[in-house]
Simulated assay, not measured.
Amino acid sequence: MSKDILIVTTENIPGQQYEVIGEVFGLTTQSKNVFKNIGASLKNVVGGEIKAYTKMLDKSREIAIDRLRSEAEKVGGDAVVMMRFDSGSIGSDMQSVAAYGTAVKFVDNQN
């Protein structure tokens, strides 16, 4: 089992001192099947939330965070600070999601 990697959107973690390791990313690209795309197109005519795409983006964020956590672990990190998301469309039916931040290693300040 992989170790628990703390992920925060803040620059500082209260009560922790750390050294910066470097930038880490978690990426995924997802697509809905043709039937869900047809349903989304029909929903586009009448308006409202397209739940299939919302669900896809939710799942994409989870995958991106899992991959970010794995990348931080690979470089010896204990946490990721300043985590952010970025997303964009690829073509008309694919969505790419990136989670990124700075991997850090906790340091012991006791002398």
Rank of each mutant, 00 (worst) to 15 (best):
T102Q: 14
D4C: 04
V75W: 04
F85S: 11
V20N: 08
E62K: 08
Q17P: 05
L68I: 06
G15S: 02
D86M: 02
I13R: 07
Y18W: 10
L68A: 14
Y100I: 01
S89H: 08
E23H: 11
I7H: 07
E73V: 13
N12F: 06
Q95N: 10
N12V: 11
N109H: 01
E11W: 00
S96A: 11
D108I: 03
E73Q: 10
G48Y: 04
I65P: 00
Y18S: 05
Y53H: 10
V8T: 13
R69K: 14
G15V: 00
T102F: 12
I21Q: 05
E11Q: 08
A72Y: 15
V8Q: 04
N111C: 03
G101P: 03
I13F: 00
D78P: 06
I13Y: 01
R61Y: 12
S2F: 04
V20E: 15
I65K: 00
N37A: 13
T102V: 12
Y18H: 09
G47L: 07
M1E: 09
G26M: 07
L42D: 09
K3E: 14
R69M: 07
S2T: 11
I5Q: 02
I21P: 12
D78M: 09
A98Y: 04
K43V: 11
Q110R: 13
V45C: 05
S96C: 07
L57Q: 02
E19Q: 15
K36R: 14
T28M: 11
V8G: 05
F25Y: 15
I13P: 00
A72L: 06
M56T: 07
E49Y: 04
I21W: 03
L42H: 01
I63Q: 02
S41H: 10
V80R: 06
K3H: 11
K43D: 13
N109P: 01
D78T: 10
I90F: 00
Q16H: 10
G22S: 01
Y18L: 07
D66W: 04
I63L: 15
N37C: 13
T9W: 08
I50A: 11
V8E: 10
F85E: 06
E11V: 04
S87R: 03
G101L: 08
K51A: 12
N44H: 05
Q16N: 08
D78N: 15
